[in-house]
């Protein structure tokens, strides 16, 4: 599965070779290219617990001839449709837990819309630098922490009230895993902060959801990854309407991307249950470093 990442980069880098900004390229080439890139990102995104917008926006924004306004709009719908498509499989296998998702998504979506309003009045470059530095720092933090699965921890009072617990069958480990979460108030605050900054930065911020669920709340890595996807689908449902109302969605770009990611993410959701947790963890780190570096370089004006 990690071999998909280089393939993704090859595809992305090959895009400008056949046409970036080349007016001789027929228009229909672009929807086909978007479908192919979206399909591969869809597989990787589910395994990494991100919406995929964090990969889609930098890759398509850099290597396709579309204005970033439209790429952002499609990126958001891309993350939304991919996580919606993966949701049923994640819920049925217990990798995503609705009881865990509901309070965190509510905190995140309220804060996300507040963040979007704030983000309109702050310098974009400064925001990009802050985002890139934060994401890279979190990636190194996960890398440094060897033990990401905490076993069954003791619930706090709020966690007990919300009954944030569950169980799932892990075919990769060959066992049934019971779990509880801890530090519920801190988790809610973290998701409000992630939602706020996600709204400010215009991202689903799935790359921050996973460490918040896993490192802070002690959800098993696979539950963190699966539930992160479902949280993105809920938070992005509200953000998607901002782009629709602003006329920032081009169907010619949006539909092939959505169809591609939906097919890819269904495959990713099935692979998640049989992919060993360390592989998923490495993929999360790789995605975060890639996204963080991209945001940092864009903010510094090096890679715009």
């Amino acid at each position: 599965m990690p071999r998909v990442a280089p393939l993704l980069l090859v595809l992305a880098y090959s895009a400008p070779a056949f046409a970036a900004g080349d007016s001789a390229t027929p228009w229909w080439i672009w929807p086909i290219a978007l479908f192919a890139v979206s399909f591969i990102i869809g597989i990787v995104a589910v395994l990494a617990g991100v919406g995929g917008g964090v990969l889609f926006v930098p890759i398509v924004g850099s290597f396709f001839p579309f204005h970033l306004d439209f790429v952002r709009g499609v990126g958001l719908l891309f993350a939304l449709s991919g996580t919606l498509a993966a949701g049923p499989v994640l819920l049925r296998t217990g990798m995503a837990n609705l009881r865990l998702v509901m309070p965190l998504a509510l905190a995140g979506s309220i804060a996300s819309m507040t963040g979007a309003v704030v983000g309109l009045s702050v310098a974009t470059d400064l925001l990009q630098i802050a985002l890139g530095a934060t994401v890279i720092a979190i990636a190194f933090m996960i890398w440094a922490m060897k033990a990401a699965d905490f076993g069954v921890v003791e619930s706090d009072a709020l966690g007990e009230l919300l009954r944030l617990r569950g169980e799932f069958e892990d075919p990769a480990a060959g066992m049934r895993i019971d779990w509880r979460t801890r530090r519920t108030a801190a988790g809610l605050a973290a998701f409000a902060a992630i939602g706020f900054f996600g709204g400010v930065f215009g991202l689903g911020a799935g790359f921050a959801n996973v460490p918040a669920l896993n490192l802070l709340m002690a959800a098993p890595m696979k539950v963190a990854v699966g539930s992160s996807g479902l949280i993105i689908s809920i938070i992005n449902s509200s953000a998607a309407w901002v782009y629709i109302h602003r006329g920032a969605l081009l169907p010619l770009l949006a539909v092939p991307s959505i169809l591609g990611v939906m097919l890819g993410s269904r495959i990713g959701a099935r692979l998640l249950s049989v992919t060993p947790a360390p592989v998923v963890r490495r993929l999360v780190i790789a995605v975060m470093l890639l996204a963080g570096a991209r945001a940092l370089l864009r903010g510094l004006g090096i890679w715009t």
Binding site: R99, L106, V117, L120, I234, S238, W241, V242
Partner: peptide, 22 residues
């Protein structure tokens, strides 16, 4: 849990209405 569901639906309905689109 039902209260969380209703609160989330209200937030989403506000977004659909265009209240936050600016």
């Amino acid at each position: 849990q039902a209260a969380l569901v209703i609160a989330q639906t209200v937030v989403l309905a506000a977004a659909v209405s265009g209240l936050f689109a600016g």
